[in-house]
Amino acid sequence: MKIGLFIPCYIDQFYPRVGIATHQLLVKLGCDVHYVREQTCCGQPLANSGYEDSSRSCANRFINNFSDFDFTVTPSGSCAYHVRHHYDFIQQTSDVVHVRNSTLELTEFIVDVLKKPLPKVTFPHKVGLHSGCHGLRGLRLAAASETKESAFNKVEELLNAVDGLELVYPERLDECCGFGGTFSVKEEKVSVAMGNDRIHGFLEKDVAYITSADMSCLMHLDGLIRRQGLLVQVVHVAEILNESVYGAS
């Protein structure tokens, strides 16, 4: 099974540690992982801003880059969602259909495709789980609090297997963190208010870490946390599962 790794632009540039953790984790799980050096952006920032049309070449390149793989895996719920859900604006060739069907977010790939137990890891900390909205309501990585489906949570399933990790949720289980791509600057005030509320929801529960399967939410929360000097750290799920959280014992 050939796996193509898609590392979104902001992870490549700002959070290589998340890309590294994802790569290493997949290798540990016995996957044949490939990183296509020609990869760029999936086009989501443009499309969400209303410029779907201008993002056509990004989308086509994405398809070209990943059409030879059995699965395309990415540590970003939001990029996977964009490819799966929004790529209907390009012509639906068999390559496009294949890539759209086989692009998965990391945790769903592990839970739904690999279905393998993870290597034993320890993370003896109180961790708050933030469900990124595109992963939650777009990819259905978990049952959203609005729906009355029976409860499931793929990310939680993986974190539950980590030794010593105490998983908690904020009072408002899965409210949006307010990142939303360009929303974070177009609607700065609302975005910041949402982010601060989210962080305080976690602080109320006394967590040492906030984790998520989506690094973009965490980038936004981290920006607020560091500006205010708050005592909580953000960490991507892949880093915990790969036991490579920076500075953690």
Binding site: D12, I20, H23, R37, M219
Partner: peptide, 25 residues
């Protein structure tokens, strides 16, 4: 605007791609 109330992400020493070229690649 991002920087009004938020810090920018810290710029790491190397990108993922650099790491990949040096290690896994």
């Amino acid at each position: 605007v991002w920087g009004n109330q938020r810090e920018f992400p810290p710029v790491p020493r190397q990108t993922f791609r650099d790491w990949f070229d040096q290690n896994a690649g």
